[in-house]
Each structure stands twice: as structure tokens, then as C-alpha cells.
Nucleic acid binder design. Sequence first.
DNA 1: TGTGGATGCCTTTTT
DNA 2: GGCATCCACA
Length: 767
Amino acid sequence: MKIDFLNELNSSQLQAVKHIDGASLVIAGAGSGKTRVLTYKIAYLLSQGISPASILALTFTNKAAKEMKERIGQLVGYQLSRYLWMGTFHAIFSRILRNEATHLGYTKNFSIYDTSDSKSLIKSIVKELQLDEKVYKPAYILGRISQAKNQLITPKAYYENADYQKYDLQNRVPRLREIYSAYAARCRQADAMDFDDLLVQTNVLFGQFPEILAKYQQNFAFILVDEYQDTNFAQYLIVKKLSEQHQRVCVVGDDAQSIYSFRGANIDNILQFQKTYQNAKIFKLEQNYRSTKNIVNAANSLIDKNSEQIRKTIFSEKNEGNRIKVSGVLTDFEEGFLVASQISELHRKKRLSYADCAVLYRTNSQSRVMEESLRKQTIPYRVYGGLSFYQRKEIKDVISYLRLVVNPHDEEALKRVINVPARGIGDTTVGKVLNTAQLQGVSAFTVLTDMLKYNLPVNAGTATKLANFRDLIQNFSDQITALNAYELANNLVKATGIIGDLHDRSAENLSRIDNIQELLKAVHEYVETKKTEGLEFAGLADFLSEVSLLTDQDNDKTEQEERVTLMTVHAAKGLEYNTVFIVGMEEDLFPSPFAETLRELEEERRLFYVALTRAEERCCISYAKSRFRNGKTNFSNPSRFLKDIEPQYVDFDTEQYYASPKPRRDWDEEVSIERNLFRKENTPSTDGERLSFSPTRKLSKISSSSDAQPIEKENLPVGCFVKHSLFGIGKVLGITKVEGCERASIDFGEKGVKSLLLKFAKLEILK
DNA sequence: TGTGGATGCCTTTTT
DNA sequence: GGCATCCACA
């Protein structure tokens, strides 16, 4: 096999690729060719004659796995690459768990509960225990359970641990341990695992069955892990166990981009790698191929302020590039306008494609204002995040039906669809069924199979309705090996009448029907794909096992569209754009007010680091003095992180505002004057017009102000005329100096006499 | 059993 | 401001 592809690597990349005996840690700085090292390393292993089936490569997203597999296929041929064990932790280990399910007391067809299933189950349990749902909030409870699971703490261990009990008592949820126990029991009863269980049960499997562990240890001669900084304890331990004998493990990651600790990711896994693997060799990839020198240096100066990190010197050999532009504006609306104007200008003047621009924000809720501004200037955009395809109600409903057919004990699926479309089985009845199931120690569906035997207290009419529903599901369950996934799904959608229920042709319903058709199409494609891979029969169970671990990031819709990208910084990790706008760079937003400890604050700083390093050539940061959030206007100061970037890499648009830790009084006065003016001008117009109105005038000035110099005192003799974007034309009455800042007193006629800071005010001198 | 107005709550989220 | 949820009522 040809291995001249290795020529495409630089020397440190090559060293990392060629080190295949023993553990190695590849610290890959942003834009340093991390994925390239991983893919080429695997290709290299294959070229050395290693069997693809003995290589395990773990990623965090399906997308990453898919892209890597594709690339490796190109390098060494698909005949080899298709046999690689490459996928997300969850996908790979759910596959292994299905094969070994019976050892653990599950069936091969166990369901996978997603987050909403888990929350719904917790809600039921909280109700059954007659606890207050306001105190025992499902999201919080699930978070705690998830934390426990990540640490591999069983319900029993949790129940018996005095520290947890104390902690929960302090947080006024003393009975959390009972909920955890009940939750685990109910999942088992339903033959279901939640996302965390996929990792927990893998650990249980490997811990309790040494011979099974040995089997996989021998099978996986090489283990590679992408984004290692994001692994949690359960994942760390799986990798450790599997590589115990041969130690041929290669992990790739960047501690500076660890931004998922809130999901249990433990940055110590990467920081302490050498302690776990004593003879581990470390490779550092320090050349950034993505960004200009200025951006790389700015990002370096930022991350340097973090205490916990693996020191490295990231450098760029690209050109110097522009400085990062930081703009301060009054409101979030202005910020939107500013960004839209800048994009528009870049598109017109520099012929920059919209697809090369991204707007990044800390929270999803910030997208709304941005979207509005972009629409106003007719700039095409696409928002990432939000509700995924698989989370949509109608899709979840159909999937739940499919799940129930494959695994009738799946309680969450049953609860979801038993009355969809409405068939007269209300909450009361469902409650009775669930209650009876609890009393009898069987699953809800089992109760339906013999309502008399289990003493279900319903009248004859209700019993008939329940029996009809049961028969519907049973009928399809019986055909599970006779019909393939598509035939079954298609028939099921027809038989349940789920589409008929959406008959009134409102736009909403039409889109729902579309979505269901889309899903059926996906099932069809799945069956066809499997056929081309030589699998004659692709059953519903197979389809479900894959689809439940899919998110819509994996949909192939990432094609080159001429659109601006809007997404959270988290979602942007791993991506790159020519021009990046980071908006909402304010205290109480970025860093998030939830970040209290130093560790959390450092994670926020890493998040900002991730944002900066997405940019190839141009990076514009903005912050607003006031922002509409949670139904009210909040005021805040520029983010402390702005000061963490060395000033030589940055151009501040509103320097003096930034420079003072607390906004100056006089500046505040000016703000309030302008604010009132805004209000006055805006009141008569309708909501829709409001935005295209006065901020436009004001900001058209700001947006082109990169070339506008602050006005010097010398250029502004008393008596000369100036034009202000808001106040109009005025006459200079005099210049005074207050606290080292020059202010001009200007008579704007009807609008009154204003005192403006020269450094700040955008004045045009009229000749 | 289904609907509507009042109430409460908000981060980030690869799986 | 917007969404989900809850209780009150038809």
C-alpha cells in the first residue's frame, strides 16, 4: 500500500502518527491539524497491515466519526475502512451492549431513553412519591443522577453514602436517593438505558465479566480517542480498561478547548494523562494553519490568563492580518444592526461570501435579535441549534411508536403515544395502568396483555380502548422479523392514523406531515444503504438502535450554502470561518453569571478562546450597554475577558468606555440622553418599523467608523458647525476638559445644548 | 377529556 | 418576551 500520504504532514504531526507502540497524548492546538493526525494515523496503521476490525476510534459526534471514516476511505480504500470500529462512545458501546445485553439483564432490543424521556420518567416518580415538583425539578434531579452515573456511583452506593445525603439535605432534596433508585429500577423494568447508562453499563460489563473484557481487550489492538479533553470519568475508565494490556492508546485533544465540564467532562483526564499511562509520550502540535498571526497571538494572550493548562506555544505562519475589532454599542438591537451592516459591507466591498461569516453567541436566546437584523438587511442566514429534527413532537411520536413495537416494555414510549391520536385514553386511565404496573411489579404493557389478571380498575369501555391499542402494537410486534424497517414504519404510520389526525391543512400541520414523510424517507434510505452494504434485511430494531443516537447535526444539510451561520460558541467548536463575529461580550453574559468558581470561570475563558480561534482572517467582537433579556432590560459592562487579550492585537471602537472599570458618570448621562431620544422618536411607529428607523441612522455612522478618527480639539474651533447622527446639526459653544477627557458643549437648537465626549461622539465637521 | 388564561422559568448540551 | 405547565372550567 502506498503511504506517500504521509508527505502531507509536518514533522510533529508525522512523529505523532508514527508513534504506534505504547500510549501517546497528542496535544493539538486550535487549527493545528488534529483530525488530520488521527485519520492519517489510522491510515498508517492500516498500511502497516493492521486489521481494521482491531482498531477502535472513539469520537464525540457522529459527524466527526463519519468525516474521519470518509477521509480514511479515500486514503486507503473503502474495503478496509468500512470495518473500522469508528463512532461515538455511545454508538460503539451501545453496539457492544446489544451483543452482551443478556449478561446484564437487558434484552438485545433495549430502548435508549433520551433526555426528555428521562425527565418524563423522573417526573412520574416524583409524583408517585408525592413530592413537590417545584422542589424536585426533573432537570435538576436528572443532572444529579447523571453526575452520579458519570462517577459510576450506583443507586445503592448513592443511597448509603452519608455525604450525598448531607449534600441533598442541604439542597432540600433529601429524598433524591430514593428517586435515583426508583429511576434505575424503572429503566430496567422498561428494558431501557439512558445515555449515561450506555457508559455505565459498559463499565459494569467490563468490571463484572473479566472474560468479556478480555475478549474486547484482545480485539481492540489500537485505541484512538478524539477530543479527549471532553471525556468524563466513565469514558476515561472504559478506555483505560480496554488498553490495560497493550497500552496502545492514542488520545488527541486540546485542554484549552475543554468546554463541556457541565456535562461531566473532566479536564483532569487530559492533564493527568501521563499519570494514568506511565510511559506515555506527548506530542504537541503547535502550528496553527487556520488563522492569521494576529488572531493566534490574541488567543494565546487570552488563554495565558488561565492557571490550569498544558503550556504550549501556538504559532501561525500566515500573514499578520487585521487586528480584532471591538465595538461597544448601546443596545442589543444596535449590535444586531452593526453586525448585519458589517457583513453587508464585507459582502459588497470585499466580495466575501455569506457562507464565510459566522455570528457566535453565548446563549441561544441571543439569536433572535441577530436574525431580525439580518432579515432587515436581507442577508441570508442559518441558525444552528434549537430544536432538533428528532426532538419535534410528531417525530418523537412516530419514533415512540416504533420503539414500542420493538420493545413493548418501553414505558416512556407507551406514555407518549397511547393517546396519540386521541383515542379516549386520558391521563386518569394512563395513571391507573402505570399504577397497576407498579403494584404488580410488571411493565405497563404487560398489564394491558391481561387487564383482568392484573386487576386494572377500568370500566368495560375503557378496557376495550386499551385492548385495541394493545392489539395495534402487538400486531406490529409480531411482524418485526417479517417486514423490514421501512415496510413496518410505513404501515405503522398509516395504521395509527397519526397523519390523519393532522388533517386540517394549517401550515403547521403540513410541515408536520412533511416531517413524518421525511422520517419515512430516512428509514427507506437506511434500508437501502444496508442493502448496498450486503445486509439483506434491515429490521426496525437495527434502525432504532442507530437513530436514537443521532442528532440533526448529523443530517447532511451542511452543504455549501450561501448563508451566514448563527450558532452558540459551543456549537462552533471544531469549525472555522473566514470572518467571525462574537457578540454579547458582556459581564453577566460572557462569562456566564453561572460561572462562580475559578475553575468555571476558566472554562468560560476557554470558551472565548474557542470562539476567537474559529476565525481565519477577521474577528469582530461587540458588546452592548443594555440588553433585553428575560422580559426586561439589563445593563452591563464589557466582559472582563476583553482585558485578557493583549491590547496590541485589538482595536477598540469605543475606547474610553472600555478603559474605565465603571462607566463614567458623564458617559452614562450621554447614554440616557440618547436613550430618551430613541424612545421619543420611536414611540409613534409600530414595532415593525421601529428597528429600521433611528438606529439605522445612528449606526450607519458607527458601522463605517473604522476609518473615522476621533475628532481632535484642534479641529473643532468654537463657533464651527458639526453634525451628530442623532441630534442633527449643532454649533460648538466651547470645549472643556474633565478628568482628562475633552468634552464639547454643542447647541443643537431644538434638541438643546449637549455636552459630548469628543473621543466618543461621532461628529462630522461641516465646512 | 380537552381548552384557555394565569403563572413561573429561564446557560452552554457532542450522546 | 416566549414557552411550558397548571389549574379551572366547559
